[in-house]
């Protein structure tokens, strides 16, 4: 029962996240860069739970984002899944503990990797695709994501880190 409830909460949380990402968050934009709430939520999930357990939530969140992104369909989900998998691998093999500074470092690396993947995969999926993301936008988004990561870390620790 508790497990079903947690799955339900994760689905609802991601859905609310996608809605916030497309309605409220664009208004926080600075120089065309706004925080990526879904990426941070997914990374927090991957850090606290394994990719193996959370892959369905990551694919679902990516596909929901794809519906709203305007980018070639599948690009966001492919980037999100790849980044989540890489971060999970890095977390399990290099850092074994869940600590704030490790999580923040992983969120920072993932934000950079996500934007690079969007550019590379975008070109592979559509030859005419041009990503207008400048270095400045990537840096501002990184800063935003780190702040979001800090805010969500402790909340997630209470909700997700059950034994």
């Amino acid at each position: 029962m508790a497990m079903t409830m947690k799955i339900f909460l994760i689905i609802i949380g991601l859905l609310i996240g996608v809605i916030l990402q497309t309605t409220l968050i664009p208004f926080l934009s600075v120089m065309g860069a706004s925080p990526n709430l879904i990426l941070v939520l997914i990374l927090i999930l991957v850090i606290f739970k394994k990719f193996e357990k959370m892959w369905w939530a990551i694919v679902s969140a990516g596909l929901l984002l794809d519906l709203f992104s305007g980018l070639p369909f599948g690009l966001t989900s492919l980037s999100l899944v790849t980044v989540a998998f890489l971060i999970d691998w890095l977390h399990r093999n290099v850092f074994s503990e869940i600590k704030l500074w490790i999580s923040i470092g992983l969120i920072g690396s993932a934000s950079l990797a996500y934007n690079i993947l969007l550019i590379i995969l975008g070109k592979l999926l559509s030859s005419s695709f041009y990503s207008g993301t400048s270095l400045l936008v990537i840096v501002i988004e990184l800063g935003y994501n780190l702040i979001l990561g800090l805010m969500l870390f402790y909340g997630a620790k209470k909700i997700l880190h059950w034994k």
């Binding site: 497309t22 984002l65 709203f68």
Partner: peptide
């Protein structure tokens, strides 16, 4: 109704 979800694209729904 909403804006695009990515910083790489500018869309409205």
């Amino acid at each position: 109704i909403s804006q695009g979800s990515s910083n790489s694209a500018r869309y409205f729904l």
